[in-house]
Design a protein around this nucleic acid. Structure first.
Length: 887
RNA sequence: GCCCGGGUGGCGGAAUUGGUAGACGCGCCGGACUCAAAAUCCGGUGGUGGCAACACCAUGCGAGUUCGAGUCUCGCCCCGGGCACCA
């Protein structure tokens, strides 16, 4: 039994593509371009099959678009700065650069092994000065344009190691290595003014019509534009005022307290004279900086003793410091309206504050607290759930008990707005306008737009990143590094024996003369967030050897990326930062393209079962095997616990190494499985059974092509006049498949495309007869199969194309055309239902009229039996689809 | 906690976007070939009942809209992604 020899074929065709420069891209404005890009990897060590899925999907697009006649740009590179390199340096005493470049070498070899259609001449690694020098130049331009600035912000601080921790390094509030309780600490850091573009970034989401809706929604929510008001409360016994931001000025009459962020200046001021408050604030700071930690922590507050005066009714409201108020959003202070906000309600109950409803459904009577308290407990309980409305004594009544009452935009409500209005019913937006007008009249507030989006903090106190090109001079302040002095290169001679930033510890690197006055000064020792590198790498690919960041003409031709592919985990940060970067670069005259990625596809993760031994240590899949109904460790037969299927990760060892799969089955088999077993956007579970099935199919096609059941006519033979029924059916299948697979590729339905190609293979194998027509139809089917499968299993297809006397490479062959006469059938099978239940199917000529369909359906024996003599009330006919008889 | 997804046979998934639920594949069962095994080929395979024709049940749970719901609406449950210093 002949088997496809991938061990010879795969390196052979890789060499052919490489020698011919098949995938080398050249700027050519006379041709339509297509730029397809997969998110570049962080060089973490070795590729596993999880990485490959991303690249295999992109490779299908690249090869398919190439067959469609596009001038395709498909580059690859390395997102090479990052924390893991420093961790490796600490753990294994290897230099981050050495570690990174070795990983790039290994992973690059692995990528070449899978036959991806990359233009390797454009390979980029972001940790090289040749790359990051341009980033430093961009930063200097941002600085000039006012898009970069410094301000204080908080970081996670490890008090034992005296170092800044990433959120990832904070485990349950403690430093991952020291185990010390993490504190927040304020540092002056660099920021990029992304909020400058908040409205534009939000509005332009509408233009991203080839992005998944969910990503667009996530970005819009992330920017979180909300129209509200800033309002100022007089402080009792003081001259200054407290400013808060609210999205619900209409509920101001329900305010019963104000709350400050622990980082608010007023909190700090109050803490100076109140040690218990100071302790409370310190406790809040141990929560860490992530929003998740803050929002999931138990809501707590501390009464500062300060009192805010209500701008309308003069009530004195207590001012709390609360652990859930974020300094970054709004003004870092809020007013609380417990009746209409669940969090405020919980807070009010906890601290015994009044709950004062100020809006209610117009159709109900309001119960005051006294009347409510007089009700029996079971009646009170009726108010706990739902919308605060319950029937008491036959009348709908309203009271806020355990659940805050929230209004919808569509309805109108009765409102308590003091003497601001007499109107009996208002919509929320009308009430907001009235409240804001009232505030303005008292000089206590004005309309304001708030954003959830915050400016992008780009300073990192780490070595393995791009140095921020400024110098701090005692006399001149912050001085940009002159452009002629770029790049500011990382020093190589660093050591990681001490915790903290090696750049800061370096004996000489940071000491430089001030470029402005010449006196001794120090370099900025912070480096950039690695998201900065990934915010413009797609531009560098357009002209990777250019002396500038990119050549304008090349970028004008290639940009935007026509198809971007990557994980859903990047739905907000990386994609939003890149969109911002294009606009910031635009403001500095670099480019006119606004949106970097015209189309986006987000692929799911590759998952695998996890295995652990009796001691609870993780085991690699290749360390275990099934034996006698259980799973055991191969080395000693010890029982193994099979855990849940999870995203492949080095930490759980549930990774399938690429080499093992490619050695055993070849790259094409792995590619086929990764592309066919799940829709690309969904998660995929890697199983050994799956890879066997893919391998079996490749050999089946291989044999069908190289050992056809009967001789094929020479390539290019004209079609015979007549075809047998079986041959004609195969031809129809062939042309339907061409049409459908093209549509599937365009829509990323890759798993379905593979299913269709397999159907074609099945039908080709079942072809009856060996006459001229059958042989011709078989050749047509086989050639088609090779061309359609080409983007998925490219090596095998080149080999088969050669076996079919193909005169060129599949990689250079145009996509096949389909004959519309062969893609539609003369008859259709129509389902017949009786009262919505399937009772029969009937064969009808295509596009038969409704009367014919109805008559034939009613004449059917099965239908008659189901009707059982009952009178037909109605017949619904959907042509070519269904007949539903209603009795 | 907040934002965004997902849930269909033993398993991965398909379903012309409101019209025959389960394409294609994996696994399993049976058969052929073989001294035997592997490989390959042929047939079967959602569940329950029935010799069978067939009937009933079935797309996470519960309601609803409709001639007709996996698909639309409302309310739940579970799983996953993100939450600004992991990339």
């Amino acid at each position: 039994m002949a088997r496809y020899n991938f061990r010879d074929s795969e390196p052979k065709w890789q060499a052919v593509w490489s020698e011919r420069g098949t995938f080398t891209a050249t700027t050519d404005p006379s041709r339509p371009k297509f730029y397809v890009l997969e998110m570049f990897p962080y060089p973490s060590g070795r590729l596993h099959v999880g990485h490959v899925r991303n690249y295999a999907i992109g490779d299908v697009v690249a090869r398919y678009k190439r067959a469609r006649g596009f001038n395709v740009l498909h580059p690859m590179g390395w997102d090479a700065f990052g924390l893991p390199a420093e961790n490796a340096a600490i753990a294994s005493r290897v230099h981050p650069a050495e570690w990174t470049f070795e990983n790039i070498r290994v992973m690059g070899e692995q990528l070449r092994m899978i036959g991806l259609a990359y233009d390797w001449d454009r390979e980029v690694a972001t940790c090289t000065p040749d790359y990051y020098r341009h980033e430093q130049k961009m930063f200097l331009d941002f600085l000039k344009a006012g898009l970069a600035y410094r301000k204080e912000s908080t970081v996670n601080w490890d008090p034992v190691e005296h170092t800044v921790l990433a959120n990832e390094q904070v485990i349950e509030g403690r430093g991952w290595r020291s185990g010390a309780l993490v504190e927040k600490r304020k540092l002056t850091q660099w920021f990029l003014r992304i909020t400058e573009f908040a409205d534009e970034l939000l509005d332009d989401i509408a233009t991203l019509d080839r992005w998944p809706d969910r990503v667009r929604v996530m970005q819009a929510n992330w920017i979180g534009r909300s129209v509200g008001a800033r309002m100022r409360f007089r402080l009792q016994g003081r001259d200054d005022r407290l400013e808060v931001f609210t999205t619900r000025p209409d509920t101001i009459f329900g305010a019963s307290f104000c709350a400050l962020s622990p980082d608010h200046p007023l909190s700090e001021e109050a803490a100076a004279t109140d040690p218990r408050l100071a302790e409370f604030i310190a406790e809040c700071r141990r929560l860490g900086t992530s929003e998740e930690a803050i929002e999931t922590a138990e809501k707590q507050g501390y009464d500062t003793g300060l009192r805010a005066v209500h701008p309308f009714d003069g009530r004195e409201l207590p001012i709390y410091v609360a652990n859930f108020v974020l300094m970054e959003y709004g003004t870092g202070a809020i007013f609380g309206c417990p009746a209409h906000d669940q969090r405020d309600l919980d807070f009010a109950r906890k601290y015994g504050l009044t709950v004062r409803p100020v809006l209610w459904p117009t159709t109900v009577r309001r119960l005051d607290d006294e009347a409510f308290a007089a009700l029996p407990p079971e009646t009170q309980a009726l108010f706990e759930t739902g919308a605060g409305v319950a029937t008491v004594d036959g009348e709908a009544q309203f009271h806020v008990a355990g659940t805050a009452f929230s209004a919808t935009d569509a309805e109108t409500y009765g409102y308590d707005l003091g003497d601001l209005t007499d109107r009996p019913a208002l919509s929320v937006s009308e009430a907001k306008e009235i409240a804001i007008a009232g505030l303005a009249a008292r000089d206590s507030g004005e309309p304001s737009i708030g954003y959830r989006l915050r400016d992008w903090g780009v300073s990192r106190q780490r070595y393995w990143g791009c140095p921020i090109p400024v110098i701090h001079c005692a006399d001149c302040g912050v001085v940009p590094v002159p452009e002629a002095d770029l790049p500011v290169e990382l020093p190589h001679d660093v050591n990681f024996d001490r915790p903290g930033n090696p750049l800061d510890h370096h004996p000489t690197w940071k000491h430089v003369p001030c470029p402005s006055c010449g006196r001794p000064a120090v370099r900025e020792t912070d480096t950039f967030d690695t998201f900065v590198e990934s915010s413009w790498y797609f531009l560098r690919y357009c002209s990777p050897k250019a002396d500038t960041a990119f050549d304008r003409a090349d970028a004008d031709y290639w940009m935007p990326v026509d198809q971007y592919i990557g994980g859903i985990e990047h739905a907000v940060l990386h994609l939003l930062y890149s969109r911002f970067f294009m606009r910031a670069l635009g403001a500095c005259g670099y480019t006119d393209v606004k949106e970097p990625f015209a189309a986006l596809m987000t692929q799911g993760m590759v998952c695998h079962e996890t295995y652990s031994d009796a001691a609870g240590d993780w085991l690699y899949p290749e360390e275990v095997e099934s034996r006698g109904g259980g799973v055991v460790r191969i080395a000693d037969g010890a029982p193994v616990t099979v855990g849940r299927t999870e995203k492949m990760s080095k930490s759980r060892k549930n990774v399938v190494g690429l080499e093992r799969v490619v050695d055993t089955y070849g790259a094409d088999t792995a590619r086929l499985l990764l592309l066919s077993d799940s829709p690309p956007e969904r998660d995929l579970e890697w199983t050994d059974a799956g890879i066997e099935g893919a391998w079996r199919y490749l050999n089946r096609v291989w044999r069908l092509v190289t050992e056809p059941a009967h001789p094929l006519p020479p390539r290019g033979t004209a079609a015979p006049k007549a075809f047998s029924e079986s041959a004609l059916a195969l031809r129809r299948k062939t042309h339907k498949t061409i049409k459908a697979v093209g549509e599937d590729f365009e829509a990323f339905r890759l798993n379905r495309a593979v299913a269709r190609i397999r159907e074609l293979t099945n039908q080709a194998a079942e072809l009856k007869g060996s006459d001229e027509g059958a042989a011709w139809a078989l050749r047509e089917a086989l050639e088609t199969t090779v061309l359609l499968l080409g983007p998925i299993t490219p090596h095998l297809c080149e080999e088969m194309w050669q076996a079919l006397d193909g005169d060129s490479l599949v990689a250079d062959a145009p996509w096949p055309d389909w004959d519309s006469e062969l893609t539609v059938d003369d008859t259709v099978t129509v389902a017949v239902q009786v009262n919505g239940k399937l009772r029969a199917t009937i064969e009808l000529p295509r596009d038969a009229d409704k009367g014919t369909a109805e008559d034939l359906a009613l004449a059917d024996g099965g239908v008659q039996r189901a009707l059982a003599g009952k009178a037909v009330r109605r017949v619904v006919v959907v042509p070519n689809r269904i007949v539903n008889v209603v009795v």
